[in-house]
Design a protein around this nucleic acid. Sequence first.
DNA 1: GAGTGGTCTAGACCACTCT
DNA 2: GAGTGGTCTAGACCACTCT
Lengths: 234, 234
Amino acid sequence: MKHLHQRIRDDIEARIMSGEWSPGHRIPYEHELMTEYGCSRMTVNKVLSTLAANGLITRRRRAGSVVAEPSSQQAVLQIQDFALEAARAGIEYRFKILHRSIEPIDAAAAQRTGLPVETKMLCLSTLHVMDDVPQAFEQRLINLATVPEADQEAFKDDPPGTWLLRRVPWTDAEHIVRAVNADSTMAKRLQVQTGTACLVLERRTWQAGAFVTEARITYPGDRHQLVGRFSPVA
Amino acid sequence: MKHLHQRIRDDIEARIMSGEWSPGHRIPYEHELMTEYGCSRMTVNKVLSTLAANGLITRRRRAGSVVAEPSSQQAVLQIQDFALEAARAGIEYRFKILHRSIEPIDAAAAQRTGLPVETKMLCLSTLHVMDDVPQAFEQRLINLATVPEADQEAFKDDPPGTWLLRRVPWTDAEHIVRAVNADSTMAKRLQVQTGTACLVLERRTWQAGAFVTEARITYPGDRHQLVGRFSPVA
DNA sequence: GAGTGGTCTAGACCACTCT
DNA sequence: GAGTGGTCTAGACCACTCT
């Protein structure tokens, strides 16, 4: 049994993500949501305040709350969800799995993740495309010991990151950010010139101590920046 | 007249930042804070929940709330202290102030920081050198309205960032990370080839709502990476 | 068992701004 | 002027975990 505020929040996020509520769309007033969910105003107020603090909606007295316009600063340095970001920005998004295999983890990755060397990993390479422009190339390992159902997943509707996010709540994450010059292979994938500065984000996530996934995501430096806000939520 | 929850939050943050309450220190129970501030539990609960979401404290039923260990704090791309890092690594460190001036803030920076346009800022350009190799180039604005004593500081012993860190504890920070190709000027400063991918970290910090400083730090991409650990935000 | 925090209610007054 | 969100109160019940 989920908490009420989580259910309300999930419902609203789902509507924003699906595009049903696009940027500028007015969200129901607090008292409408009270009626809809049969709860007190404090509860819906907490949900909407949190969504506003996270930048998904903007609130104005008298005018109500609306789905936020996408900020010019795209990628957020929390757990990223390309589909959600694209939906918020009103951008056509698609992805393409370029590679898929199951392999025992190699020595270097075993050391990084703390897993035994023979652990089976699902290896995926995904290209993320928005408005026909490649925006990121993602190389991902998924621990099949922790997420065995990934083996049966075709990743037709959601890219691996989004799929994982919905299925496996994470408790810890480690990030490494570097800048690299694109080699010719990467440049071709991302449709940039060889040598273009790219942002490389490596993210490893654990769930209660169990390694879940490692992603290495390469962004063209001129198309993306990572933003982290460490300010009060209120 | 500030809001009550802001006053409580500022008080607690100030005690944590000053070191009066160090990591592991138990924070007063909610009902103690209710008595101290003469308010309802909802109000102190909101403050403590926000602080927990921001990683400043950890909360446990029955045991109460304690100041979080720095490693588990959410401030990922931590406030960096070149001198401290170099000392830890046993590396010779020096810095050189390449430029110093006092200028009214320009329109673009005023918008970023929320300051009035005519605010006087101390502008500093600093090169950070370790073992005779340039490791970072830093362009910094310091708000003289918040930190007037910076005007009199020669920055002989400590670089601006370290000096500020000791003098003005920060409560809020915003980070932006990008990748750029070094232009010829930057390449010369950092002793890399023109076009080398560099990591650019922009950091803006506030103390209890007052803007303190903005730093844009450029690192050669092959010499540096940023590492951070996260736990979920509520 | 007892005390803590997590969530929620059903109100209230106020500040803001114009659906 | 009226309706919205921002904040706050004084309760309540429950889940969790051991100061």
